[in-house]
Each structure stands twice: as structure tokens, then as C-alpha cells.
Design a protein around this nucleic acid. Sequence first.
DNA 1: CGCTGATCTTGACACTGTCAAATCAAGTGT
DNA 2: ACACTTGATTTGACAGTGTCAAGATCAGCG
Lengths: 228, 228
Amino acid sequence: MSRSKRSEGSRSAAEAQIPYHKGNLRHKLLREAARMIAKSGVEAVSMRKLSDRLGISRTAAYHYFDNKGELLAAVGQHGFTRLADRVQAAGKPELPPLDNLRQALLAYVRFATEETEFFRLMFANVLQRPVQIGATAELSAFRFSSPEAFAVFDALLSAVKRCQADRCIRGGDPLVVANTLHAFIHGVARLAIDDHLKIQCSMEEFLDQGLDALFSGLGGPAQARLPQ
Amino acid sequence: MSRSKRSEGSRSAAEAQIPYHKGNLRHKLLREAARMIAKSGVEAVSMRKLSDRLGISRTAAYHYFDNKGELLAAVGQHGFTRLADRVQAAGKPELPPLDNLRQALLAYVRFATEETEFFRLMFANVLQRPVQIGATAELSAFRFSSPEAFAVFDALLSAVKRCQADRCIRGGDPLVVANTLHAFIHGVARLAIDDHLKIQCSMEEFLDQGLDALFSGLGGPAQARLPQ
DNA sequence: CGCTGATCTTGACACTGTCAAATCAAGTGT
DNA sequence: ACACTTGATTTGACAGTGTCAAGATCAGCG
């Protein structure tokens, strides 16, 4: 009695004979959940409201996701690939690699401030995720969260390597440098969206100054290494 | 019939004549909530379970907190003062100020990894908090989350200033330096507790390397500023 | 047709946050 | 001793929530 719309509606035969959701349901669920999150935050997502919007019953989603956490985690995973795309696409190849690195870092923060709810969800361990092992040779030694999340870090890592190849930045372990920059930019992003950044200038100004400090170093009054 | 324990128990007269909770209830609520969070995470806290543990009725807490969010926010606020204490107490005054700064930053990360659930709660905007205005003259220009949260930043800021006074680090705007370090360490903390840090060494080793890079600078192959 | 397996729905359960109204405790003024 | 007031606490109720178990419905294949 509640399935009327789809099975016996006044649609055309071609449209009506499409059974159930065929396999789109999973995708539709993710898309609609993402829409709700973007509009009203993660808290506003409930399985029932989500189902209502798609015109399906409360528990239909449980055929594709074990529980609500897994659904949200899947939405979060997709957020990582979008972030990775943005970071990778930032900057132009004709610019010097250091500028491209700066643009990549800026893109990271911009994503966080523009898609705050997604950013939060991505890093919220909304379920105890299965720890995976790195895919590339270089990083195959340790555990990390997911391949999608790795893509973001990888974009930073290769930007760092390009800088080192061009001798824009020092030639230490690129992993350490990338992690350091990642940590810095991630901290900026989180403090910014949580209103804990004590700056009076604009975000971009602060980022410029902070990165200048990072690149030129904080050590000593005249940039000389301190003795101790 | 359920108030038996407190009103007609077999306690001594001196103890029994204490009415209600008199004003301890608010404190007891915060303490018990903190205990539950520490043991089982924020998700495990419900008003009803919390009330049960204290032997009071479901809605008694609503006389002290407008809603669950405010209660959790209060627990989070207290977390900030504990973090501030730890950061401030890190290091010894006989050590060079740069070492003290390093210890302060290490203490920040340690707090995050040891009291993860609290750390998460502190920065989760579990309610739309009233934006406040900075108290000290230097920072009275802009808005920030809370005085308790400010104390943490202030501890970092004064450590930075001591370094600058000793000429351990460069003499730029201490606010920018403190924010930069705060962002870095906050990013390290968050990435660490969310399993997004791609390092194979220990936390302390990475922090040492990262801070070395921060203090000595990343710019140029031989630490020279790049031309562009 | 009937069977099988995937897909989806219905009913139910335990649990949640919180409002409205009632109850209780204790102090104050008379 | 009494009523009155004010704060503290409980009880009842309601609308929601996630999710399990059982059933219904569908598509395709023999």
C-alpha cells in the first residue's frame, strides 16, 4: 500500500518496468545522504528520513550497509577523493613548484572551510574501520586509514618531491616534510573550522606568513642555526 | 518509591540532613559524565544512563543544563583547562626556552593521544557556543571560543615569547609564530588520533624531525632563501 | 510453472532527548 | 503553627532513533 508510486504509478511503461532500484540504491543512498549532510550537517541524517526522501522503507538501506556508521563512512571516503582531486588540481604546471605546493596547501584549507561538514565526517571515525596496508612501494610499511585518504597525502608528497627536485626546498626525507606540511595544514583547517585560530588577518594572509616561517625557518635571530 | 536511598537511608543524621544535592549535582553530573567518556567514549553518554548512575531521575540534569549539548560542552571546557595545565607544566625552568617550547608542544600531543575522547569532545562544537571576546589586551581584537581554550594558546604564546627574548627563534610577530606552532601541533595531534599520520617512526622522533624542520626552515638546498 | 536468491517492507523492541505538569524540600514571613 | 514562595526533583508522555527478525515481492532461470 505504500509502494504505490513506483510499481503502479502513472509513469510510462518503459519507466515503470524498471524494477526496484536495480543497484542504484546504494548510489542513491550515498548521494542523498551527502545532500542532507551538505545542507543540514551530519546530525540531521537519520536512516528513516533518508529512506523517506528516497521513497523506500526504513530498513532498505541495510541491504547495502551493515549499519548507519558504514553508510556515513562511505560518504566520508568519497569526500577524500574529492579533496584529493582539489589538492591535485590546485596550481598550474607553468608556475614554480613551490607556488604549486602553496596552492595545494591552500586548496586543502579551502576544502575544509567550504565543505566543513564533509571534512568533519571524513576524519570522524564513525566506525572502527578496518586498518589497511599502504599500496605503493614507498609506503607499504605502515598502516593507514584508506586508499582514498592516502591519495590526498600522496598529492602533497609528490608536490614536495617536485620542490625538492627543483631545489626549492631542502632535500630531507620527503615523507617527513610531507607529513609536517600535512600536519600544519590540517591543523590550520581544523582550528579554522572550529573557531580556534587566533588571527586577525585573513586566512590567506596567515597562511602566507605561516608558510614563509615554515620555509625560511624559525631558528635563530638571523636565520642561523642555533648552536645547541 | 525510588528516592529511598537518599531520603530515608540508614545514614547518620549529619549526613542525612543534607538536602537534595544542594549544588553538588552539577559537579557530580560533570564528573560522572567525564568518567563515562573516559571509559567508553562520548557516544556512550546518555542523559538517562548518566542519571541512573547518580541515582537521580532522567530529567534532573535539566535543572543545571539546558540540554545534553551544554552538559557535554561544559565537560569539554574543563578539558581545556586540564590541557592548559599540562602544556604550562611541561618542561623545567632551568632548561633553555626552546627545549621548554618543545616540551610544551609534546605535551599537547600527548594529551591528545592519552585523553583522546576528551580531546575530540573539546573541539567538537557540540552546541552553537556563544562567541566571546578575548580578555587580554593583546588579543582583545578578535573572537575566540572560550577563555579556557585561550589559556592553552596563551601557554604556547608565552613560551614563544620567552624563546624570542632569548633569541632562540626569530623575532617576528609572536602571534603568527604561536598560531603556526599551534596549528602544526594540533594537526599532528588530530592526524595521530585519527590514524592519518604516515610515519614509520615513533611519535617523538617524528616531532623532533618536524620541529627541526620548522625551526631550521625548509627553504632552499642550503638553507638560503630562494630568490623568487 | 516453480524455485532461488536478491531486494525490499512491516512489525516490533529498546533506547534516546526533552517538554509539561506534578511533587517534594526547605526557607521565610506572620 | 501556618501559608506561601522558590528551588529541586520526579513522573508521564511524546516523537524520534537504529536495527533485528520475519515476511513479502521481484527477477531471472530451469
